[in-house]
């Protein structure tokens, strides 16, 4: 699988990741060589194998829907880039 520079631009958009224009070619080369490695998976027929997502085949443990943590808003907002009146500030979204 070989990628083109437009593929890298569209994947970077999906990932909300800014890539400098002059680095696109490097990414095309690196990602294509990684995908070539990944394509080795196709040497094996596995269509009847059940996919494994948890290595112990365990399912997610559930818990009662209860409040277990107190309000720590002030503590969490101390490390935020931009807050005002207890809210997180971002550029205007709705005109």
């Amino acid at each position: 699988m070989t990628l083109k520079s437009d593929d890298v631009r569209s994947i970077a958009h999906l990932a909300r990741l800014y890539i400098e224009e002059d680095k696109i070619d490097d990414y095309v080369e690196d990602l294509s060589s990684i995908l070539a490695l990944v394509d080795e998976m196709n040497q094996v027929d596995s269509h009847e194998v059940k996919p494994l997502s948890n290595p112990l085949d365990a399912s997610q443990r559930l818990r009662a829907d209860e409040v277990t943590e107190g309000n720590q808003r002030d503590k969490f907002q101390q490390i935020a880039p931009d807050v005002a009146a207890g809210l997180y500030r971002v550029p205007r979204v709705i005109e």
Binding site: D7, A15, R16, L35
Partner: peptide, 23 residues
Amino acid sequence: LYKRSRGEGFGAEVKRRILIGTY
């Protein structure tokens, strides 16, 4: 904000892996 914060915050290998994973 998303794109530049992530573009500046992550190094080259992390970016490669995010891109391959997203793909």
